[in-house]
Design a protein around this nucleic acid. Structure first.
Lengths: 244, 244
DNA sequence: ATTTGTCAGGTTGTCTGACAAGTTGCCCCG
DNA sequence: CGGGGCAACTTGTCAGACAACCTGACAAAT
């Protein structure tokens, strides 16, 4: 980071956001080593020609991101493991921008790994109650399919029920976190076009296969079915995007 | 949330932190529905008897946590999926507190799923260069073992090299994120006690098995070996904790 | 009747100055 | 040489002001 920043921060994205990103980048680049002290608020004010309020909001953001810790009277220090407090998918750019296609493939792959592992555990641990909930979600999708209605909610419920059956809250939480990035994919899967094209029907067949494996406690088959479902979903999603 | 808050915020943890937690809790409790508008800064100032700076920092924190979005001139609005922007492991309590034993088991399980999936992909995609790096890390651990030195760094390098070989940056990033919560486990694995007890030697044998599977492109064996390694690590960790 | 332009009020973003609370280092005194 | 205490510095909070922006309503023009 240059000593004095003549090139000011981008005002378009908000001064504090710009400054926060800038400082985070500097920390990631090793410009400030873990444990080292950051410049004081006053110094940052002068260097970036912004008010102290802006600096404080930027620092606050870095705090909640786990990059720095502050001690009143002492200063702000780079955390021992900067930025490791939480896991983000979004590119540094922003929340709105869609992800590049290659990244999307990687995230689908990550999701396949998680869903396969979860299906395996669900096949081991599912209770009878779990089966009831999963069956209900499948019935909901069947009904939506018959009435040409939107079954996205039932789709969500299906995967959530499997996550619950796996009996690991962290795994479930992470699966939910990932699936959030695929709301577009699920919405697309239940659009009229997809239904008439048979995509939705194919998806439902995969659901059925997955459920059968979980019901019969066949862990290997469950993992295979889950992975297959995610991979096919990704393929259908890509195809639909290309057409539309 | 009561209309006027006579019971003020806990000053001990910082006013803005308290207020942020409070608002986040209110959102999670459904008090503010997704898309709904939050009270204005002025109203929050009056309700909680704090300055606007505190309110703004609290809102800023909620923004980076993905709970709210603000539009200048319009107001602050609850996000569509509050709190789903990032994945956290830490309990709501704080960063310092160690996790309960049951949670630790669940996280080990999540880690096993990830490492197994990663090993499988690494077995498919590893290049000759990848093998060289992995071999180097194993040699480093061998040397540390022979000299009774600390091989934790080489241990890290070994797992990082496999993550790299898997060719999926998101998967690697998440694995690194998870492994961060096990620095204590790895440090324990390389303590003198562990070495003399043969734990370290056992771990190294598992590493070797995993490497062999990746080298020979045996995906199933790689997944099995990775899972085994994580499970055994967890068992050794728990045993060491109980003794020490 | 519909559209367009303007305006006023409200809300968030930023600036400025000040004081309180806490830390750190140094000087002076014993 | 050691320790107490003070002074400078830093972060946390408060208060008031203006700028940038959004929203809804009203008036004018088509």
């Amino acid at each position: 980071m240059p000593d004095s920043d003549a090139a000011l921060l981008a005002r378009s994205a908000g001064l504090s956001d710009s400054l926060a990103s800038r400082l985070a980048a500097a920390i990631r680049a090793g410009e400030f080593a873990p444990g080292a002290r950051l410049p004081t608020e006053k110094q940052l004010v002068e260097r970036f020609s912004v008010s102290r309020a802006v600096v404080r909001e930027a620092i606050a953001r870095l705090k909640t991101d786990g990059f720095v810790e502050t001690r009143q009277g002492a200063g702000a220090f780079v955390a021992a493991r900067p930025g490791s407090a939480n896991f983000r998918i979004l590119a540094a750019g922003g929340a709105e921008a869609g992800l590049p296609e290659a990244d999307l493939a990687h995230i689908f792959e990550l999701r396949a790994v998680i869903e396969a592992g979860m299906a395996e555990l669900a096949a081991q641990r599912r209770s009878e109650d779990d089966l009831i909930v999963i069956r209900a979600a499948m019935a909901g999708m069947d009904q939506a399919l018959a009435n040409a209605a939107d079954g996205a909610a039932a789709d969500d419920a299906f995967h959530a029920a499997i996550a619950r059956a796996a009996g690991n809250p962290y795994l479930a939480q992470f699966a939910a976190f990932l699936s959030q990035h695929f709301s577009a994919s699920r919405a697309l899967a239940w659009m009229p076009d997809a239904v008439t094209a048979g995509n939705t029907r194919a998806s439902q067949a995969e659901h059925r296969k997955l459920f059968a494996a979980i019901e019969s406690r066949n862990t290997a088959a469950a993992a295979r079915a889950a992975r297959e479902h995610i991979q096919q979903s990704a393929a259908r999603y890509a195809a639909t995007l290309k057409k539309g």
